[in-house]
């Protein structure tokens, strides 16, 4: 019901923690390594190890895990759907339930739980970056990491700016989507009734106003940015110049230890 009432992905969670204080470039790269580590986990034990590390990282970031899970919001559905598909399409081992073409088997359940957990951990790992890093910092990291490619003609600064603004507006669009949803429900739309019948029309009733609003925002925002002398990346300074500190060393060490441990854990026989 309450779309937009909860914290969502991309929303920064202000806190005073080791992870928050890390250099965004380091966090950006390390979150890639962290996701790789989750992918490396091929056994339940290894996945459990990866999960322990991620829980530990959330502890270090002082973000309540429940909040982080809540922040995943609709993406949880993605996890559930993936799991469901695995239940239905992976066959083998003992069969628990069979009805027509639907067959739920031991392997299917196992695979669903495993893939579901893995996807869930991946999402948690990803949102650790956005929860602990402001959009401008993510932008800056992205931009700096791309900077060497600017000579090859990649518009690094522009890409960074686009990313930053997209992230800044994400929570706002979720709020607006919530209002549009409630307004259309007030006009008798039943999004819960039958998602297959008239689904397109329901989607239009939500998405068209949202896009219209995005265009409106874009128009004034660009004027407002110009009015504040925005003229691309040339000669811009930054309020917080990025600097690597001991925290980034510690963070790198922790994530590398995680990667090594997860890989090693793959060899522990179940």
């Amino acid at each position: 019901m309450a779309v937009g009432d909860r914290a969502i992905i991309g929303q920064y969670w202000p806190e005073d923690s080791l992870v928050h204080a890390m250099d965004p470039r380091a966090k950006f790269l390390l979150s890639l390594v962290l996701m790789a580590a989750v992918f490396c986990a091929a056994t339940p034990v290894a996945l459990a190890v990866a999960a322990l590390f991620i829980v530990g990282f959330y502890g270090a970031a002082r973000i309540p895990l429940l909040q982080a899970v809540g922040a995943l919001g609709p993406l949880i559905i993605l996890v559930l759907v993936t799991a469901l598909l695995n239940v239905l399409f992976v066959q083998g081992g003992q069969v628990y339930f069979e009805w027509g073409i639907i067959c739920i088997s031991e392997k299917g359940i196992q695979s669903a739980v495993f893939i579901g957990c893995r996807l869930f951990l991946l999402l948690l790992g990803m949102s650790l970056l956005t929860l602990t890093t402001t959009t401008l910092d993510i932008t800056a990291a992205f931009e700096r990491l791309l900077a060497p490619t600017a000579r090859l003609g990649v518009p690094a600064h522009e890409l960074g700016m686009i990313l930053g603004i997209a992230l800044r507006f994400l929570p706002q669009f979720m709020t607006e989507l919530g209002v549009i949803y409630r307004a259309q429900v007030s006009r008798g739309a039943r999004f819960d009734a039958n998602p297959f019948k008239g689904g397109m029309r329901m989607l239009t009733a939500l998405m068209v106003p949202l896009f219209a609003s995005a265009f409106r925002h874009a128009e004034t925002l660009s004027a407002a940015m110009e009015a504040r002398c925005y003229h691309g990346g040339d000669g811009r300074t930054r309020l917080d110049p990025l600097r690597l500190t001991w925290r980034d060393g510690a963070g790198t060490a922790a994530v590398l230890v995680m990667l090594a441990t997860v890989i090693a854990a793959n060899f522990i026989p179940v």
């Binding site: 920064y12 800044r168 706002q172 925002h217 407002a224």
Partner: peptide, 8 residues
């Protein structure tokens, strides 16, 4: 809402 560019 149309003139704030940053999250902080």
């Amino acid at each position: 809402d149309d003139q704030i560019v940053a999250s902080l």
